[in-house]
């Protein structure tokens, strides 16, 4: 069967998809944590600015962000971004907006009394955050963060539009070259199946992580 000949390419495409979505997720987590922190700030101005950031990038389709980064930034700055860099930035922008929501929700889920009890023992504000708030908040953040990863991984398929050869683009290229053969529709089924398996695995992994971190019995 013709697909066997292309299996190496599919595995490589899957690897690239996992890689770009993983890099984008790490960036999204870092930026999202900062934005999320800002959204719980006491300062009105910081809450406003970070809120605008989050609403902005959550509202724009990733594809539009991607076009803006890939073509727009090049026009504005003259810097030629590679398709990988452009796609990573676009995914990270959208991901960080979603992550900021996750972080904000996690931090706000911690009862006020926790901070007060810790402050009352003489801990400094940063110690309270480090030892009391974040260890509890992260447990709350894990399930929705897994959701963000899954949607980032799916959104990474849009990078195919600007010619970045990840899993979807690999599939489309294979389909092109086998046109007329029986494999041309089958290849899409195979690609879809790979996405399902990978995302299911990620969800299971996330559930295990959640289970392991559960301190309520």
């Amino acid at each position: 069967m013709i697909l066997i000949d292309y299996s190496f390419l599919l595995i490589r495409g899957l690897g690239i998809t996992l890689w770009i979505s993983w890099v984008a997720l790490l960036l999204a987590a870092l930026i999202g944590a900062l934005i999320g922190l800002g959204r719980t700030s006491k300062r009105w101005s910081i809450r406003f600015l970070t809120g605008v950031y989050a609403e902005f990038f959550r509202s724009i389709p990733v594809l539009v962000t991607l076009f803006f980064v890939y073509y727009g930034l090049t026009l504005l700055t003259g810097i030629n971004l590679s398709t990988f860099v452009a796609a990573t930035i676009a995914l990270a922008l959208e991901g960080s907006a979603m992550m900021s929501e996750v972080v904000r929700g996690g931090l706000q889920s911690i009862a006020k009394g926790q901070r007060e009890a810790a402050l009352s023992t003489g801990m400094k504000a940063w110690q309270v955050e480090l030892f009391i708030v974040w260890p509890q908040a992260i447990r709350v953040m894990i399930p929705p963060a897994v959701g963000v990863y899954v949607s980032t991984l799916k959104a990474s398929s849009l990078a195919s539009v600007i010619g970045y050869v990840e899993l979807t683009k690999t599939g489309l290229l294979i389909r092109e070259s086998v046109r007329g053969h029986s494999g041309s529709l089958l290849i899409l089924v195979v690609i879809a199946t790979i996405y399902v398996i990978i995302n299911f695995a990620i969800s299971r992994l996330g559930a295990m992580l959640e289970e392991r971190n559960n301190f309520v019995n």
Partner: peptide, 10 residues
């Protein structure tokens, strides 16, 4: 000492 104890659950 608080009414609701406020122990750290983790």
């Amino acid at each position: 000492i608080f009414q609701n104890f406020n122990l750290y659950p983790h």
